[in-house]
Computed example of a mutant assay.
Amino acid sequence: MKSLTKKLISIISLVILSISLNANDLKKDKLMKISVESNGNITVYELNNSQASKELLAQLPLDIKVENYSHDEKIFYPPNKLSTSNTPLAKNAVTGTLAYYAPWGDVVMFYKDFGSASGLYELGKVVSGKEYINSMSGTIEIKLID
């Protein structure tokens, strides 16, 4: 009986370990980062796990024109519009927020605090290089970071 109990405990321990390892792998899979290169400078964003973020990733890599808009953001238009289902609204966009403005179909990179707007969805946040957003110009290169 003791032998059977030890075997069962060993099996259960292996199952728990396997589940734990798989959960860690899933967390790693959800971490999505992109780099945006402009004028020799690189800005890195960590994307959320939303539908819009996944659809943006599916369009990478991109060499695309970046434009100034207003006094606080740079924008670009991905080739295909993004679905906003299961994508959180950007309720308080701040410096470094990456967002999608659904009414116009443009991706927004904020270099100053903004706040919120109807139709503005959060895609992620900057993790490095936010000081370069303001100086982005011309054609930018956007790619997935492995």
Rank of each mutant, 00 (worst) to 15 (best):
S18K: 14
T97K: 09
N86V: 05
N86R: 12
L26N: 10
D63C: 04
K65N: 14
L47N: 06
L31E: 14
S38H: 11
S53K: 05
K28L: 12
F114V: 13
G40W: 01
F76E: 02
G105N: 13
F110N: 02
A99Y: 00
I19L: 15
S38V: 04
K28N: 14
E73P: 06
S38L: 02
N39V: 02
P79G: 03
K91I: 09
L82T: 01
I42T: 12
L57H: 04
V108T: 11
L89A: 11
D29C: 01
I34D: 02
K27Y: 08
L21V: 12
I34T: 05
W104T: 15
D106F: 09
D25F: 11
P88N: 06
I19C: 13
D113M: 09
Y45F: 14
Y111E: 03
L62K: 02
A117W: 15
P78E: 11
N49G: 07
M32T: 14
G105F: 02
P61Y: 00
E46Q: 14
E37C: 05
G105H: 03
A90C: 13
A102M: 04
W104F: 12
D25W: 04
K74T: 09
K28F: 08
S20E: 05
L47S: 10
A93Q: 10
N22A: 14
V94S: 15
S50C: 04
F110I: 08
T43K: 00
L82S: 01
G40M: 09
L60F: 03
F114W: 13
L57C: 13
K30T: 10
E46I: 15
A90S: 12
L56V: 00
S20D: 02
A93Y: 07
K54C: 01
Q51R: 13
K27P: 06
T84H: 02
A117Q: 15
I42G: 10
S53D: 01
I75Q: 05
I34E: 07
S83D: 05
Q59N: 00
V108K: 09
D72K: 07
Y77P: 04
W104C: 10
F110A: 06
K54R: 09
I34C: 08
K112N: 11
V107W: 00
I19E: 14
N49E: 08
K91G: 12
S83Y: 04
N24P: 00
E46T: 15
A99T: 05
S70P: 03
T87G: 01
L62M: 07
V108N: 14
G40D: 07
N80D: 12
L98E: 02
D113L: 08
N22E: 10
L26T: 07
L98K: 10
K112P: 09
F76V: 05
A102N: 07
T97M: 03
P79F: 04
T97F: 01
K81P: 01
D29L: 15
Y100L: 08
T43P: 02
K74R: 11
M109W: 01
A117V: 15
Y111G: 00
E37Y: 03
N68P: 02
E55L: 07
N39W: 06
S38T: 11
K54W: 05
I64G: 00
P79Q: 00
G96K: 02
S20K: 11
N68G: 02
M109I: 12
D25C: 03
S116Y: 11
